[in-house]
């Protein structure tokens, strides 16, 4: 019985592994093709290649290069989105941060306004926060439950460690809230886009928004997002307004 199960798992792993390897390989090859096209001055082709690479596997370096290629091709919105995604995956990338600053200064665009817990969430990549939370949760649970199970007395250091883990767990919660709310931040893809009053094709135009303007998607209706900008709000399609989290 156990042997049969092990065989099944091994078989599944063998099936998935080539797919994962293929995706990694595609990401690498597209990335290199993009770099070559960028160095050759074909920024549109470079952008396509980086996009393919990011589609195969999301990577901070790929998004940073995608931002550069889009910016050089004159597409402000996609460039800003790509750099934001690079920072989303790896907040420590200074190049992407500087490029964003440069682009916003040049295009007279504002950065998204973040709440305090959203600012905290930018300190580490999302996975790190998740892992810290998970580890601290397991640590606390183990230290509280295992001595009882194994009929050992809870030592002082165990209790101290559990308190430390619990503190760590509580401290990470605002960051998770920040990640959750930041997931709804997005950017306008093209310039001079009409902001719709209703989520319809022939909606009344409220105003026009520029490429790279930050906003928050508050709710959805079909293919439309209700986006709140700093001073106005209205409906945009998902192609016109892309979320940083890619959802």
């Amino acid at each position: 019985m156990n042997l049969w199960r092990l065989t099944l798992w091994g078989f599944l792993l063998l099936l998935v592994r080539p797919v994962l390897a293929d995706r990694q390989e595609l990401a690498e090859s597209s990335f290199q093709a993009g770099v070559a096209a960028y160095r050759g001055g074909d920024f549109s082709a470079a952008a396509r290649a980086f996009e393919n690479s990011a589609g195969a596997r999301a990577a901070a370096g790929t998004y940073q290069n995608l931002g550069n290629a889009e910016w050089q091709a004159g597409r402000v919105g996609p460039a800003i989105l790509a750099w934001e995604r690079a920072l989303w995956l790896a907040p420590a990338i200074t190049e992407a941060r500087e490029n964003l600053q440069l682009a916003r200064d040049t295009a007279q665009l504002a950065a998204p306004e973040l709440t305090w817990y959203e600012v905290i969430s930018t300190w580490l990549p999302s996975g790190w926060w998740a892992i810290i939370t998970a580890l601290s949760l397991w640590l606390v649970a183990d230290l509280l439950v295992l001595p009882g199970i194994f009929r050992r007395r809870r030592a002082g250091w165990q209790q101290a460690l559990a308190a430390l883990g619990l503190t760590l767990l509580l401290l990470t919660l605002p960051a998770h809230a920040g990640w959750h709310t930041r997931s709804n931040i997005g950017f306008v893809m093209e310039g001079n886009l009409p902001l719709r009053l209703t989520p319809t094709e022939q909606a009344q135009e409220i105003t026009r928004v520029g490429a790279g303007e930050p906003g928050r998607c508050e709710r959805r209706y079909g293919n439309y997002c209700f986006v709140r900008f700093r001073n106005t709000a209205g409906w945009l399609t998902r192609e016109e307004f892309k979320l940083i989290s890619g959802r």
Partner: peptide, 13 residues
């Protein structure tokens, strides 16, 4: 034209 857009939007919704 705006009125037609309004009616179309109402029908779409």
């Amino acid at each position: 034209q705006r009125a037609a857009g309004d009616f179309r939007s109402a029908a779409e919704l």
